[in-house]
Design a protein around this nucleic acid. Structure first.
Length: 643
DNA sequence: GTAGGGTTAG
């Protein structure tokens, strides 16, 4: 290789941005090396893979070559396969088969199969499997391994195992992929069988077992495997943190992270984002703050994903102010994820106007919003009651940014109209959707009917819902509540009976609060341990104080049960969020904000009571419910009683 | 000259 060629390639490998890459490209052009297949191919690969947001440029670059070689096709296929629209990789693959004289090689198949795995099409996967077979490449080490992952993605562990059986010399990666395939299809025994037969195991094989066990809910088995494994790396630790968090075992999750720290294992940026996501799920604000301190000290604020995860964790822990601070102090260039995370944070907390403002700043900064950005923006409009603006953005999304509305966007619009009480408009909107509405869409509408007390439409909507998702307990409870509020006890009884007949059980409500860096959870009506005893005692005290000072009377209209007065009062006074707040008042330092995470929506009585507590006790209470935050302060809530 | 398995932010 001549020296100027070598020089160009080494320059290229150092380029981190599209701008610098274009400078090298200009130099390449000047030296006449732009027609050299090796240099041209590397340039294309660099744009398609190594640089973010340069895939479109790579596609345009590709069009400049009248006779692209297989390397160039492979580079583009790979870039498209890993993009947000992996379907396009198949189009390029087909174009290559039609236009070119050369045959696809093992790289072509490995990349295209990855693309198909990313959009999970069994049909396309099988077709390409056949083609690979015709070229004698179906049992190729890399092609076969990718095929195994593809079939696992499509839920066909049987096909995955068959590919594995046919491979003559599977290596450790192939074995690991097959074990993962079993776990992904919930075949825990199959995974264990393979693991025990493996002729070689490295660290990753053990990590596969940890991830698989925790995803299958087998936390005990994961714990056992973790203690059995000969060496552990930071992936092993973060897998445990994430795994425990996903199973709701937040204290164990954070315990693992603390131990990682004690063992002096250096967390990577990925393991830090994992732990932050566990904080976000748990709503563990205090723990998040500790992590923030560590991240700052260890120099991780240079990494964009860590900033983004930090913002997300702060927002979901109820402190959008800290999220804003992280966003404003970022020294690295904000990505689309950074902007969208901030937007989502503002949306969750009901700062609709600020979210709209931020969206305009985002547009001005030159970052192009995508479908996910619009989901947050539309919800922000909905939660803040900005109806006209929401409609305008829905059209702008399509017309100015060519983002096709997906199910979630339609959901936002139904929410927007529904909350505002424009139920007929919402219903017509659903009926006119170009894609068939799913259960979530109908459920959103049912929620709106419940809020505005429209029984007739609720009945109609529930019928549609029953066709799509007949056994959802929440839907039955919602319909029953609508009847209960209207005093239609006979209809309540009918719904209750149909639930009993179909053995549908109400999912229990729970609430969590972080006290002394320990997550304490409360379940409605549960009275088991010392913690709940203490919460009950405090709650009784609070309720009598509220009765005396502000004349609080429990709001029992929405109680599901067809039970009598005093019983009803007892039933709402045992709600988990009340217990959690009472526990917080008893345990936290005076004046400290009380932060609660709840799995269901807050009921009307809890909502009124929180407002009163915030006034009488002069404290702020932040409640994260299923879909948003409520900040109670001086007797008012940030949701303006509109949730 | 390009790859496949484990944790990952909107």
């Amino acid at each position: 290789m001549n020296s100027s060629k070598q020089f160009c390639l080494s320059l290229l490998s150092k380029c981190k941005t599209l701008k610098s890459t274009k400078q090298v490209q200009a130099y390449v052009h000047k030296t006449g090396l732009d027609t050299d297949p090796l240099v041209a191919g590397k340039l294309l690969l660099h744009c398609a893979i190594s640089i973010s947001d340069a895939l479109d440029y790579a596609r345009r670059l590709f069009l400049h070559f009248p006779n692209p070689d297989v390397f160039m096709y492979n580079a583009l296929i790979r870039g498209l396969a890993e993009s947000e629209t992996p379907q396009n990789s198949l189009l390029t693959f087909i174009e290559m088969r039609r236009k070119s004289v050369f045959l696809p090689d093992s790289f072509s198949f490995a990349f295209i199969l990855k693309g198909v795995a990313n959009y999970r099409s069994l049909r396309d996967g099988v077709q390409l499997h056949c083609q690979a077979l015709c070229h004698g490449l179906d049992t190729h080490l890399f092609v076969g391994t990718t095929l195994i992952s593809l079939y696992a993605e499509c839920g066909r562990v049987d096909f995955a195992k068959q590919v594995f059986e046919e491979m003559s010399e599977p290596n450790v990666v192939t074995w690991n992929a097959t074990v993962t395939a079993c776990f992904r299809c919930m075949d825990v025994e199959g995974a264990e069988g393979l693991f025990s037969q493996m002729p070689f195991r490295n660290l990753t094989s053990w990590n596969v077992m940890l991830a698989g066990y925790t995803k299958a809910g087998e936390v005990q088995l994961a714990r056992q495997a973790f203690s059995d494994m000969p060496i552990k790396d930071d992936v092993s630790w973060s897998t445990m943190v994430v795994g425990f968090a996903h199973n709701g075992l937040f204290d164990e999750a954070f315990g693992f992270f603390r131990e990682l720290h004690r063992e002096r294992i250096k967390p990577s940026e990925v393991s830090l984002t994992s732990v932050l996501s566990a904080c976000a799920d748990a709503g563990a604000f205090e723990f998040g703050k500790i992590l923030h301190g560590f991240i700052e000290k260890a120099g991780f604020l240079q990494i964009i994903s860590v900033n983004n995860a930090l913002m997300d964790a702060y927002s979901k822990c109820g402190n959008v102010g800290m999220a804003r601070l992280v966003f404003q102090s970022m020294t690295v260039r904000r990505s689309i994820v950074s902007w969208t995370s901030m937007l989502a944070g503002l949306e969750m907390h009901g700062h609709g106007d600020e979210a709209v403002q931020l969206f305009h700043e985002m547009e001005e900064s030159g970052i192009r919003p995508d479908g996910i950005t619009f989901i947050s923006l539309l919800y922000a409009c909905s939660h803040a009651g900005l109806i006209e603006q929401g409609c305008a953005y829905f059209h702008k999304m399509k017309n100015s940014y060519s983002v096709e509305p997906a199910m979630e966007h339609y959901g936002c619009m139904v929410d927007l109209y529904g909350r505002a009480g424009r139920l007929q408009k919402a219903y017509e909107f659903v009926c006119q959707m170009p894609i068939s509405p799913n259960a979530i869409i109908w459920r959103t509408l049912l929620g709106a009917c419940s809020f505005h007390g429209n029984i007739e439409l609720a009945k109609l909507v529930k019928e549609r819902l029953s066709e799509l998702d007949p056994n959802n307990s929440g839907d039955h409870v919602l319909l029953s509540n609508i009847y209960a509020v209207a005093g239609k006890w006979r209809d309540v009884a009918t719904v209750r009976r149909s639930m009993t007949d179909r053995r549908i059980q109400k999912s229990p409500g729970w609430s969590m609060i972080e006290v002394d860096k320990v997550m304490c959870s409360f379940v409605a009506g549960e009275r088991q341990n010392k913690i709940t005893e203490e919460a009950y005692d405090k709650l009784t005290e609070i309720m009598s104080k509220l009765r005396v000072e502000v004349g609080y009377v429990p709001e029992v209209r929405s109680v599901l049960h067809d039970i009598e007065g005093e019983e009803k009062e007892n039933s709402v006074s045992r709600h988990s969020e009340k217990l959690a707040v009472a526990f917080g008042i008893a345990k936290l330092p005076k004046g400290r904000t009380i932060r609660i995470v709840k799995n269901l929506r807050v009921c009307g009585d809890c909502h009124s009571m929180m407002k009163l507590i915030s006034k009488v006790y002069r404290i702020e209470i932040v409640v994260r419910d299923r879909s948003r935050f409520h900040l109670f302060k001086d007797g008012f809530c940030s949701c303006r009683d509109y949730w």
